[in-house]
Write a protein that binds this DNA or RNA. Structure first.
Lengths: 349, 349
DNA sequence: GAAACCTAGGAAAACGATTGCCGTCACGTT
DNA sequence: AACGTGACGGCAATCGTTTTCCTAGGTTTC
């Protein structure tokens, strides 16, 4: 790793340029009134020494660190990443850096991180997590603003940015109805999981609005492919007829799809399939590619960061803010134009 | 988000406790010689004001920030996360915080991050990325130590911690040979990808050591399930006989497995299947669960962080350090004890 | 009872950068 | 020649903390 040079200070720069530190500072920050020649000399000295102003020292004055903390409630993973990236986008533009803290689902660890972040004088904190469920606030009367993203705070005065999962479920059902499927089943995650309950309830309600109902009560289980396959088996075994399955996750949908195909049902001809999450890995692996609800996690992260910045600048936006989901339609709900496999008769070209 | 309290300073604490700031500092840090009663009084005042020492101000003296930067070369994702978590483990013990910077594969952005991190006076930098390929150093003569994790630096004097992919491939082949499979095919990612080439070369070499060779030249393509399926088709169509397929990724393996099963080959009875990455999502979704090579990314992150800490403390470890991979054996290479599906005859219990 | 010695805690100088204020110099004006 | 006026830069305070040095007492010791 080569020779480690020492960090140059503004004193070094000033000395090299033959001016006082105050003048050097002004020269580098475009303040005060200096001859252009002086500025040039200082800038050249700074360049030569690879000078980078010590942010810590600078922050001592401004009272701001241009730094935010991001705490994940549980483990950082598939859902936190896009949120993180969105937040980074929004914050990067404001030249802010992010401290990442992985709570690992341990409240003690989490509290420790909060203390650390506060001692580092972050300008604000974003809290996120794998579950959309409301959670206890990370602290009360904290000296910096906090925004919850994806997950929400149990305190309604906190600012939370969440996906409109119910709306997403409604869009899925709307789509299925629009393509003429009325005998819909719903297979989803564990019933102690907020997302599963919310999506199932919205599904049932939306169908009720049309005077319809699910062909069977929602099947609660897990979020895995295995559960999808198992649930599909239950459905097939019950003898219930159905022409569409709306699944609580793409993984479930994939498991369902595999099981249905194994049982001789064609997708989408016999059964239309809709997933949730729009997770590329599952979407692309599924046969055929899966129609799915996208929660726009990156947009969510961006929005959360923007609200945090606003709060830092004195304009907080308390309350729960729901962002719309959108449906990405693929071949699991629409007959492909030209199908490479066996497909129902139709004009071939 | 409630009332925002101002950050208390040590001056506030000192005033409340009725001592000077110097004394307050000593009391809180266990320095100097003070009466126990005085210490108690100061601690109580600090507690009452929710005092957290301003890390920036403190760092001004110590010259250290107890902070490291983590830069991802490309996008933060499936490979960076475990590395990040491992690093967090190792650093968290040292009370260090992590600045996360997502380079998004843009060198300009990356250089900007390096500057930012330096101005924030991080004690060190960890560079990681999705590809194991050697990359240009993020800088020369930087004032802080740098460790590359997963990805490696093109400068051999830099410290890089990488998985021993070749060793992993050898272990996979060892295992296949041990279970009596000698007609092995290899399907992997694009040949411009370092990992694909390294693994393929190691595979070929290991077989050569036994006087064997692949049943066909390695099939280079992509990392996806789709490619796996396609490649399996090629293999089947060629008429080549094979009793095992070693795949460059779990996704490929899954695609291969699905295609083989669709073609009537039983796994592992007819064809044993080994993946690479040991990615839970793919492993569990595959039927049967996939034997796979695990690169121990978390251990890699931990090791990288430990080496960084050592370097910060004056004991750098230049060079490329390869960490062993290990093979996780599952049912795609071992006949299950009791099989729920059709299985070759054998004592049923 | 005085010299020597602790001990507790205060005062002030750092750390690195910013910024308001003020002095100085070179002009131009009357 | 005396004065006013910009322009240019230096000085010093400031941010919050740590740390060194120092002093004012009280305690020991002979």
């Amino acid at each position: 790793m080569g020779r480690l040079e020492r960090h140059a200070t503004i004193t070094d720069v000033a000395a090299l340029a033959g001016v006082s530190v105050g003048t050097a500072s002004k020269a580098l920050n475009g303040r005060g009134s200096l001859r252009e020649e002086t500025r040039r000399r200082v800038r050249e000295a700074a360049r030569q020494l690879n000078f980078e102003a010590n942010a810590g020292a600078r922050n001592l004055h401004s009272g701001r660190t241009y730094t935010v903390g991001m705490i994940t409630t549980d483990t950082i993973g598939r859902f936190s990443i896009p949120v993180l990236m969105g937040a980074e986008d929004a914050l990067g533009a404001g030249e802010m850096s992010i401290f990442l803290c992985d709570g690992r689902g341990d409240p003690i660890r989490e509290q420790y991180y909060v203390k650390t972040l506060l001692s580092r004088r972050v300008d604000g904190i974003i809290v996120t997590g794998r579950r959309t469920e409301a959670r206890a606030p990370i602290g009360v009367g904290l000296p910096v603003p906090v925004v919850y993203a994806f997950i929400s705070s149990a305190d309604p005065d906190d600012c939370s940015v969440v996906p409109d999962e119910a709306g997403g479920a409604r869009k899925a059902i709307d789509h299925l109805l629009a393509i003429g499927r009325g005998r819909i089943a719903h297979i989803t995650g564990p019933d102690h999981h907020n997302s599963a309950r919310v999506r199932a309830a919205a599904t049932t309600r939306r169908l009720a609005e049309e005077g319809l109902s699910l062909v069977a009560p929602p099947l609660f289980g897990g979020w895995s492919e295995a559960w999808g396959g198992q649930a599909a088996g239950i459905l097939l075994g019950s003898g219930t007829e159905f022409d569409a399955v709306f699944c609580g996750s793409d993984q479930i949908a994939r498991g369902v799809g595999d099981a249905l195909r194994a049982a001789g049902r064609r997708i989408p001809d016999d059964v239309a399939l809709v997933g949730f999450d729009n997770w590329d890995v599952m979407i692309e692996g599924a046969k055929p590619p899966l129609t799915s609800v996208d929660m726009n996690l990156q947009g969510l992260g961006r929005s959360a960061a923007e609200r945090l910045l606003a709060a830092i600048n004195g304009s907080p936006s308390p309350g729960v803010h729901a962002l719309p989901c959108h449906l990405v339609v693929r071949e699991s709900t629409t007959v492909p134009l030209r199908s490479p496999q066996a497909s129902p008769p139709g004009p071939a070209g």
